[in-house]
Write a protein that binds this DNA or RNA. Sequence first.
DNA 1: ATGAAAGCGCTAACAC
DNA 2: GTGTTAGCGCTTTCAT
Lengths: 341, 341
Amino acid sequence: MAVTIRDVAKASGVHISTVSRTFSAPHLVNPETRTRVLATAEELGYRPNRAARALITGRTHNIGLIVADIANPFFPPMIKAAETHARRRDYHVFVADTDEDPVVETDLVRALAKQVDGILLCSPRMSDDQIEQLRREVPLVVVNRLIDGLPAVVMDVGAGARSAVRHLVGLGHRHLVYLSGPRGSWTNREIRRAAGVAARAGGAELTVLGPHQPVSSAGADAAEAVLATGATAVLAYNDLMAIGLLQSLQDRGVAVPEQISVVGFDDIATSALVRPTLTTVANPTAAAGRAAVDMLLQQGDDGATGQVTLRTDLVIRNSTGPGPYAPAGATTAQVAAYAKE
Amino acid sequence: MAVTIRDVAKASGVHISTVSRTFSAPHLVNPETRTRVLATAEELGYRPNRAARALITGRTHNIGLIVADIANPFFPPMIKAAETHARRRDYHVFVADTDEDPVVETDLVRALAKQVDGILLCSPRMSDDQIEQLRREVPLVVVNRLIDGLPAVVMDVGAGARSAVRHLVGLGHRHLVYLSGPRGSWTNREIRRAAGVAARAGGAELTVLGPHQPVSSAGADAAEAVLATGATAVLAYNDLMAIGLLQSLQDRGVAVPEQISVVGFDDIATSALVRPTLTTVANPTAAAGRAAVDMLLQQGDDGATGQVTLRTDLVIRNSTGPGPYAPAGATTAQVAAYAKE
DNA sequence: ATGAAAGCGCTAACAC
DNA sequence: GTGTTAGCGCTTTCAT
């Protein structure tokens, strides 16, 4: 069996409670004793058993991170940032994938509840009611979704959508398509709404297509439908769909951005690797992961249930260009400024 | 506080051990009692505390998954598959990221050791000795690296490299470059060695460049050096580097595959999304994740320390084409067969 | 400053 | 088939 507190106590000639104190309340133990205990512990390779500690303190020093799809490139940077941030604060992270299934989400929260001090729910697909229910069973921070009274970290996708639409309208586009994401996605609803408002304000028409799975093949499959609308610009729920559409259009001989402009969402790594490079709304996913961890860990201290909104940024690359109503001689660079207003 | 076994016992009028048995050894309890206990447990929302159980059984039903870099697209499909597979077997998964740092790896294994039944070490960068040492402290399965006597799951990257080189030689290339990956990578050494042997066998020269970080910018930065060698084909350590190189070459006006052929490794999702689409050696990362989990969970049962090698597959796409010594009229399709030999 | 003792939630002999 | 008891590794009063 592994080395326990008892072994260290015996080897250093003190009671186990002294060893315990050496690790959990060092200031309460005589410096000399402490040094000795630490030395034997080191020598024996002793490491406190967190689970046993949790049993009595009620704090596991673990957190859960539940995401819709680990393999969706949107999430890994967030997972990485959250894990690194948590570990720096001496927390370990359970990661679980729901495969976009709301039922799995609920089960997972319950299954993890006892082993963690709190759970980060990223882009949950379940209903508000379900989330509120779970909130009573375990501390929760929701990422990418805003629910009254629940601590949350969201990106300002509404502002991002507005920037994107203004950018397109400024380029002279008057008929846009929004390629919807999955049902149940808060982000999707926000983008669609904000894009609609911004389009109306800009005197442009917005056709909504979908819902779609947030994958590149869905974007590729939507090419026909997009062309059928006669629109000259497309805003997609995420970069994956935008890239699928981008390549599918080009494979059909439709030039991007000459004939159709395409804007994505997220700014995943791939977006800078495809040609044309993708104009997209950058989401600060890593910062969101860190903020969510902080919020979760603070939740224990006070009862504050803050909601943080992180800003998004339109990244103008080469998949967007002048539309049919472009002011004479307008260039992408010129209208870029407009979107910033 | 949460509901415990004692609450259920009281509410259903039995002793706590009966409740315990109801969950851990149902066949030992009277069907009627069992039904009643289960009902009250359900009603009260009781869920066994795994940490408390682990304290006495010694089995946590958790596993650790340590990867070099969560954000590297090579890993997420593996993490996802491993997590899903583990959960299906009622195991939860700690995920941690070492940022390619061998010191962090060691610390992480030790920190996680007490909370898990075993650890999956993916693409570890530390030395064989260190890994063997850790192996004594906690059950380990190593992925993407072969060490004598240690249970491991690897992909047959040597065979993959040979296929790739034969493919290129068959296309008429006689001077190849291997773009090395990170120092400490077993996969990198294997590919380099196998590529060297295959090149020699095919009467071709192989120039090795590197080491490099396994990221796209490293591939892009290597473009000058690649051109300077005068080689007509490049095999890269991974797809990210291959894609970086691919785009950097094209941005410099060097046509791919007309002037230079490029082959990657891994077959990450992005490889099918860039243009030209990337010829690459597909790694069964998801299968590797599942196999590693199985191996880890079986390790407890018997002491078997198997080593599994998963086959790789050359996926021929559009980034490779005829070289200067191509047989007249040779097409990519024709020589594809050659690589399969 | 240190030791003694109780107990966190649970399982595993051992009785009956 | 069920209750009793001890104890997993640790923290936390309470004494001393």
